[in-house]
Measured scan of single mutants.
Amino acid sequence: MIINNLKLIREKKKISQSELAALLEVSRQTINGIEKNKYNPSLQLALKIAYYLNTPLEDIFQ
């Protein structure tokens, strides 16, 4: 099972779900679904998340 630290990292960087969704060009519901482990992001989306949060991919999804 993948450990998902997206919410923790996003909140630590003081970025809202809506702000991150806008940067990634996805819906806020997509971010919410990823954070609640209801949706697994594509590799492309996971890499974009890591880029915009300036955090290694391995720290977000373990």
Results as ranks from 00 to 15, higher is better:
Gln44Thr: 12
Ile15Gln: 04
Ile3Leu: 11
Leu57Pro: 05
Ala50Ser: 10
Arg10Ser: 01
Asn32Lys: 14
Lys36Cys: 12
Glu19Leu: 08
Leu6Pro: 00
Asn54Val: 05
Glu58Cys: 12
Lys14Ile: 05
Ala22Gly: 10
Lys48Met: 08
Lys13Leu: 14
Val26Pro: 00
Lys36Thr: 15
Pro56Asp: 07
Leu23Glu: 06
Gly33Ser: 15
Glu25Val: 07
Thr30Arg: 07
Asn37Ile: 04
Glu58Lys: 10
Ile15Cys: 07
Ile2Leu: 10
Ile49Phe: 03
Arg28Ile: 15
Ile34Ser: 00
Glu58Asn: 11
Val26Glu: 03
Ser16Glu: 05
Ser27Pro: 14
Ala22Glu: 11
Ser16Phe: 04
Leu20His: 01
Gln17Glu: 04
Leu45Ser: 01
Glu25Thr: 08
Glu25Trp: 08
Gln29Thr: 11
Lys48Ala: 10
Ile49Asp: 00
Glu58Tyr: 10
Asn4Tyr: 05
Leu6Arg: 00
Glu58Pro: 08
Leu53Gln: 00
Glu25Gln: 15
Asp59Leu: 12
Ile60Gln: 02
Pro56Lys: 09
Tyr39Trp: 12
Lys7Tyr: 07
Leu23Phe: 13
Glu35Ala: 02
Ala22Thr: 14
Thr55Leu: 06
Tyr51Met: 11
Ser42Gln: 05
Ile49Trp: 03
Leu47Trp: 07
Leu23Ala: 15
Glu11Pro: 01
Lys7Ile: 05
Lys13Ile: 07
Leu20Gly: 00
Ala46Ile: 06
Glu11Leu: 13
Leu47Ser: 08
Ile49Arg: 00
Leu53Thr: 03
Leu45Glu: 03
Pro41Cys: 10
Asn54Cys: 10
Pro41Trp: 05
Leu53Ala: 02
Asn37His: 13
Glu35Leu: 04
Gln62Tyr: 12
Leu57Cys: 08
Asn40Trp: 15
Val26Arg: 02
Leu20Met: 06
Leu23Asp: 05
Val26Met: 04
Phe61Ala: 03
Leu24Gly: 01
Lys14Thr: 05
Leu20Pro: 00
Glu11Asn: 09
Leu53Trp: 02
Ile15Asp: 00
Leu45Met: 07
Leu6Ser: 01
Leu53Glu: 00
Thr30Met: 13
Val26Ala: 03
Lys14Trp: 06
Tyr39Leu: 13
Ile3Phe: 11
Met1Tyr: 13
Asn32Met: 14
Glu19Phe: 09
Gln44His: 11
Thr30Leu: 15
Tyr52Ile: 14
Pro56Gly: 05
Ala46Gln: 15
Met1Asp: 08
Gln17Pro: 05
Ala50Met: 05
Pro56Cys: 07
Arg10Pro: 00
Leu53Gly: 00
Asp59Val: 11
Glu35Cys: 04
Tyr51Asp: 06
Ile49Tyr: 02
Ser42Asn: 08
Asn5Tyr: 08
Leu47Cys: 14
Leu45Thr: 04
Gln62Leu: 12
Met1Gln: 12
Val26Gly: 02
Lys7Ala: 10
Arg28Glu: 14
Asp59Trp: 08
Arg10Met: 07
Asn37Val: 04
Leu43Lys: 12
Arg28Val: 15
Lys12Thr: 11
Ala50Ile: 04
Ile15Leu: 13
Ile3Asn: 10
Glu19Val: 08
Leu47Gly: 05
Lys7Arg: 14
Ile34Lys: 01
Thr30Asn: 03
Glu11His: 08
Thr55His: 06
Asn32Gln: 15
Glu19Lys: 13
Tyr39Ile: 15
Leu43Tyr: 12
Lys48Arg: 12
Ile34Phe: 05
Gln29Arg: 14
Lys38Leu: 15
Gln29Ser: 14
Phe61Glu: 01
Glu11Lys: 11
Ser18Trp: 12
Ile49Val: 04
Thr55Lys: 05
Asn5Thr: 05
Ile3Met: 12
Leu43Asp: 06
Val26Ile: 10
Leu8Met: 13
Ala50Pro: 00
Met1Leu: 13
Ile60Thr: 02
Ala46Met: 15
Asp59Thr: 09
Tyr51His: 10
Ala21Asn: 02
Ser42Met: 04
Tyr51Phe: 12
Arg10Thr: 01
Ser27Arg: 08
Pro56His: 06
Arg10Ala: 03
Glu35Thr: 03
Thr55Gln: 05
Gly33Lys: 15
Tyr52Leu: 13
Asn5Ile: 07
Leu53Asn: 00
Leu6Gly: 00
Lys36Trp: 06
Lys38His: 13
Ser27Gly: 06
Lys36Met: 15
Asn37Asp: 05
Gln17Arg: 09
Asn5His: 09
Phe61Met: 04
Ala46Cys: 13
Lys38Pro: 04
Asn4Val: 05
Ile60Asn: 01
Val26Phe: 03
Gln29Asn: 13
Leu47Met: 13
Leu20Arg: 01
Leu43His: 13
Glu25Lys: 15
Ile2Cys: 15
Lys36Ala: 13
Ala22Leu: 11
Lys48His: 05
Ile3Lys: 14
Lys12Cys: 11
Ser16Val: 03
Ala50Leu: 03
Asn40Tyr: 15
Asn40Gln: 15
Leu45Asp: 02
Lys36Arg: 13
Phe61Cys: 04
Glu35Ile: 03
Arg10Gln: 02
Arg28Phe: 09
Lys48Leu: 08
Asn4Leu: 06
Asn37Cys: 13
Leu23His: 11
Gln62Glu: 10
Lys14Gly: 15
Ile3Gln: 10
Lys48Glu: 05
Asn40Met: 15
Ile9Arg: 02
Leu57Phe: 10
Gln44Val: 11
Lys7Gln: 10
Ile31Cys: 02
Arg10Tyr: 05
Ile2Ala: 10
Pro41Val: 09
Asn32Ile: 15
Ile31Asp: 00
Gln29Ala: 15
Tyr39Ala: 07
Ala22Met: 12
Glu35Ser: 02
Ser16Asn: 05
Ile60Arg: 01
Asn32Gly: 08
Ile9Gln: 04
Met1Thr: 12
Glu58Ser: 12
Pro41Gln: 02
Leu43Ala: 10
Lys13Gly: 04
Leu24Lys: 01
Asp59Gln: 13
Arg28Tyr: 09
Tyr52Arg: 04
Ile9Val: 10
Ser18Asp: 13
Ile31Met: 05
Arg10Asp: 01
Ile2Trp: 12
Ser18Pro: 06
Ile9His: 06
Thr30Asp: 05
Ile3Ala: 09
Ile31Val: 11
Leu24Glu: 00
Pro56Leu: 06
Tyr51Val: 07
Thr55Glu: 09
Ile31Arg: 00
Glu25Met: 14
Leu8Pro: 06
Ser27Ile: 03
Met1Val: 12
Asn40Arg: 15
Arg28Asn: 08
Lys36Asp: 13
Leu8Ala: 15
Leu23Cys: 09
Tyr51Leu: 08
Pro56Met: 05
Tyr51Gly: 06
Leu6Trp: 00
Gln62Val: 14
Met1Ser: 11
Asn4Phe: 06
Asn5Leu: 06
Leu43Asn: 07
Gln29Val: 09
Ala50Asn: 01
Ala22Val: 10
Met1Pro: 12
Ser16Gly: 06
Thr55Ile: 07
Ser18Gln: 12
Lys38Trp: 14
Leu23Arg: 09
Leu47Phe: 08
Met1Ala: 11
Leu47Tyr: 09
Ala22Asp: 11
Glu19Pro: 01
Lys36Gln: 15
Glu19Gln: 14
Ser16Ala: 06
Asp59Cys: 14
Ala46Asn: 01
Leu43Ser: 07
Glu25Ile: 07
Ser42Asp: 09
Lys7Asn: 04
Tyr52Trp: 09
Gly33Ile: 10
Asp59Ser: 09
Arg28Ser: 11
Ser42Ala: 06
Glu58Asp: 09
Lys14Arg: 12
Gln17Ile: 13
Ile60His: 01
Glu19Arg: 14
Leu47Asp: 04
Ala50Phe: 03
Ile34Thr: 02
Lys36His: 12
Lys14Asn: 14
Pro41His: 02
Gln17Leu: 11
Tyr51Glu: 08
Ile9Trp: 08
Ala46Val: 06
Glu58Thr: 12
Gln44Gly: 12
Ile31Trp: 01
Gln44Phe: 11
Lys48Cys: 08
Gln29Trp: 12
Glu11Gln: 12
Lys13Ala: 11
Leu23Asn: 07
Ile60Phe: 05
Lys13Ser: 08
Leu8Lys: 15
Glu11Arg: 10
Leu47Arg: 11
Pro56Glu: 07
Pro41Phe: 07
Ser16Thr: 14
Ser16Ile: 03
Asn32Trp: 11
Gln17His: 04
Ala46Tyr: 04
Ser18Ala: 14
Ala50Tyr: 02
Tyr52Lys: 05
Asn4Thr: 04
Leu23Pro: 00
Lys14Glu: 08
Asn5Asp: 04
Leu24Trp: 01
Asp59Gly: 06
Ser18Arg: 15
Leu45Cys: 06
Ile49Gln: 00
Asn32Glu: 15
Gln29Cys: 12
Ala21Trp: 03
Tyr39Phe: 14
Asn37Ala: 09
Leu24Phe: 01
Lys12Trp: 08
Leu24Tyr: 01
Lys48Tyr: 04
Ser27Leu: 04
Ser27Phe: 03
Asn5Arg: 11
Gln29Asp: 14
Ile9Met: 07
Lys38Cys: 14
Ala21Leu: 03
Tyr39Asp: 05
Asn37Gly: 15
Ser27Glu: 06
Thr55Met: 08
Glu25Phe: 09
Gly33Leu: 15
Thr30Gly: 01
Leu53Arg: 00
Tyr51Thr: 07
Met1Cys: 15
Ile60Glu: 02
Ile34His: 02
Leu24Cys: 15
